[in-house]
Computed example of a mutant assay.
Amino acid sequence: MKSIKVIVIGFILAIALVAWPVEYTRNITAGTGFLLGGVLAAWLGIRRRKGARKEYEDDVRRYPGTTMMKVVWIEESVVERWEHQEDGSDRLRRETYYLPTYE
């Protein structure tokens, strides 16, 4: 929760610096705001990547079974159905499913 607060406050500060109305410091504050936004975006990416790696390691630990199999056939099924939209219209939705056969 603390990191979310840091991210939100940082992005608000970055936007405020970019939109600073004082003319004689506009380039400096805008540059600082963009730099702060870039650093926060990089930090978010690194944080998300570490989280994804931990999730993967957890999955590997939980599901260690593997087997060598060969896909000999893939059956494709297309399902079409009408979906009712919020504006009152209907839209055709197509979903494709694949069922592999292993050897």
Rank of each mutant, 00 (worst) to 15 (best):
V6M: 12
D58H: 12
E23M: 08
G33F: 00
G45L: 06
W73E: 15
L92I: 02
K70Y: 12
R62Q: 12
R61G: 03
Y63E: 06
D59F: 15
Q85K: 15
V39T: 07
D87H: 00
L17H: 01
I12S: 08
L44T: 11
V39S: 02
G31E: 01
A19W: 05
R91Q: 07
E75H: 09
Y63F: 14
M69H: 07
R26Y: 12
G38Q: 00
A41T: 09
G65R: 12
G65L: 13
D59L: 14
R26F: 10
S77F: 13
G31C: 04
I46C: 04
E57G: 05
G51L: 12
L13H: 04
W73F: 12
I28Y: 07
G37C: 02
E76P: 02
P21F: 03
Y98C: 03
Y24I: 15
I9Y: 05
P64G: 06
Y56C: 09
I9L: 11
H84C: 05
R53Y: 08
T32V: 13
G65S: 10
A16G: 09
T32W: 07
L99M: 11
V18L: 03
L17E: 01
T67A: 14
A52Q: 15
G51N: 14
Y24C: 06
M69N: 10
G65V: 11
M69E: 13
